[in-house]
Design a protein around this nucleic acid. Structure first.
Length: 501
RNA sequence: GGUUUCGUGGCCGAGUGGCUAGGCAGAGCUCUGCAAAAGCUCGUACAGCAGUUCGAAUCUGCUCGAAACCUCCA
């Protein structure tokens, strides 16, 4: 079998994946800031890395998956005043900060479950790791890469860059930014900053008197900087150097760049072996953002309650839609595309369920050509996933298998076309990848036994009517049920089945 | 301005230097009392212009166009 290759943002190349500790993988993914409701933009990275998590486990790795909750609030670095998003929002909503954080954390968890994302193995909070963050900052100061100003602490980017460039680790190596070019153009000295340099970033920020969220530190009361929590928590749970760090492409600069700098100073080693970044989403071709007024919250997405949405979309439709695109491509959300995804998922799922209905007793395939083709398609599942998690290609193969499955079920294709062994492989692979690796679930409504009984009764009556050629009655049953969202299907063998829309 | 991406058939989207991606929609056919579902068949696409090459959608250059990041953001 081929080896897993991942695209490493750091080297800008696909690299063979080798974990630091054989059999184990440490993975850190930047989680949400819980100062507001989760939106569509959160869906992509968390689904993407859920697939990574699942696939690594499928490959047999024991994975420690750390995904943080940022509940301490970031502040605007360039703003005149430091601003804690959570403090601000808490005042606005008249909630205790932790009450606010709890509320949005719960909603976030609810959405993650709706997407069928597996919980990370550790989900640390920033507020729960103030001690670790302070400890890390102290180390950075002691090493001379940070300075204190008015109760705040800043990382000295220029010094870091000077020293570490000589070691081949310049600041900006992840995002391809060359510091010198940018520093020269830093002429906007409009605010008398505490920073020595425009590029310096805060490790700790002194809290203004009105700040609600504040902690004691060696430098006075304040709150941690934007970037330090990830470094502190990743180091604590995954060690000085770990395998995978994930997040959205927008975090590459400056967030991940700063993480690298902080951790490298503290731990004397670059923190991450493989950086994996998912691309962004757009909505009808436009970036999602407050300025475009097109931020779709997940609650709105699932309910269809948003001007940009023509209907509600099931979380599984979103998941499937995301899987149809490679994670490093931008993905455009539009109603037509989402509806297409919904139909596609239903078709795939029905074929998947039809698998249970077919059997083969053939030791040898009656149609060796088809048999060989199917085995090839199935084996490519692993090959494609090993090629930087190409879920889109795996789905394409699955759709090539759909007509084969349906054909056998409807007896267009010889019942023994596939050998018993191939059919077994087909069933196993489909189950493993659809449910296991992709984490897809049925989106068709499930009836209870009473509904099922009633519909079967109606199907019986319709069947009898048809035998009498009483098409008025049979059509009435069919049409009225269709109107209620129950679709009857006449099977080839004269039987009937139904699905709930 | 700097850093990055990207421009693929009606829509969404994979993709490798030469071999059909796939989904949705559309057309025809089979099945059916009629439908639906299912199956079969079909469009022969790769922004434009040059160049490299036996051969490029895939490599190079330029032009046009779009997006992201550089400031909170997934």
């Amino acid at each position: 079998m081929t080896q897993l290759k991942v695209y490493n943002s750091l080297s800008r190349k696909k690299e063979v994946f080798e974990s630091i500790t054989p059999g184990h993988v440490g993975m850190y993914v930047c989680g949400p800031t819980v100062s507001g409701e989760s939106h569509l933009g959160h869906a992509r990275p968390f689904i993407t890395f859920d697939i990574v998590f699942r696939y690594l486990q499928y490959l047999g790795y024991k994975v420690r998956y750390v995904r943080n909750i940022t509940d301490a609030g970031h502040f605007e670095e360039e703003g005149r005043e430091a601003e804690d998003k959570i403090s601000k929002k808490a005042l606005l909503e008249k909630l205790e900060p932790m009450e606010l954080v709890q509320k949005y954390t719960n909603m976030y968890h609810w959405a993650m479950r709706a997407f069928n994302n597996i919980d990370p193995t550790i989900e640390p909070t920033a507020t729960g790791h103030i001690v670790e963050q302070i400890g890390m900052i102290e180390k950075i100061i002691a090493d001379g890469y940070a300075y204190v100003a008015n109760g705040s602490v800043y990382f000295d980017v220029e010094k870091y860059n000077d020293v570490f460039s000589k070691k081949g680790l310049p600041y900006g190596m992840l995002s391809g930014r060359i510091l010198d070019d940018q520093l020269d153009s830093t002429r906007e000295l409009e605010n008398r900053d505490e920073k020595r340099n425009h590029r310096d970033f805060a490790l700790w920020k002194n809290a203004a008197p009105e700040h609600i969220m504040r902690w004691k530190s060696p430098w006075g009361e304040g709150f941690p900087g934007w970037h330090i929590e990830c470094s502190a928590m990743a180091t604590k749970y995954l060690g000085a150097q770990f395998d995978i760090h994930g997040g959205g492409m927008d975090l590459q600069f400056p967030h991940h760049e700063c993480e690298i700098a902080q951790s490298t100073v503290c731990n004397h080693v670059t923190p991450v072996r493989y950086w994996i970044h998912n691309n962004m989403i757009t909505i009808n071709g436009k970036k999602m953002g407050k300025s475009y007024n097109n931020v779709i919250k997940l609650t709105e997405l699932f309910s269809g309650n948003h001007p940009a949405l023509e209907q509600a979309y099931h979380p599984m439709t979103i998941r499937f839609f995301i899987l149809q695109t490679h994670y490093r491509s931008t993905l455009d959300f539009g109603n037509d595309a989402l509806k297409a995804a919904e139909k596609g998922l239903k078709r795939l799922w029905e074929a998947y369920e039809n698998l249970d209905k077919i059997q083969s007793s053939a030791a040898n395939a009656a149609d060796t050509e088809l048999d060989t083709k199917c085995v090839g398609l199935l084996n490519e599942f692993d090959e494609f996933m090993n090629d930087d998690f190409n879920t889109a290609k795996v789905l394409a193969n699955m759709f090539e298998l759909v007509p084969v499955i349906n054909g056998i079920k409807d007896k267009h294709i010889n019942q023994n076309a596939l050998s018993a062994g191939t059919l077994k492989l087909l069933k196993e692979k489909m189950k493993t990848f659809i449910e296991g690796v992709f984490g897809l679930q049925n989106i068709m409504e499930q009836g209870n036994s009473k509904i099922d009984g009633v519909i079967h009764l109606l199907m019986e009556i319709r069947k009898e009517a048809k035998l009498r050629k009483d098409y008025v009655t049979s059509d009435k049953i069919r049409n009225e049920l269709t109107a209620l969202g129950v679709q009857l299907k006449d099977e080839k063998d004269g039987s009937m089945s139904y699905t709930l829309a």
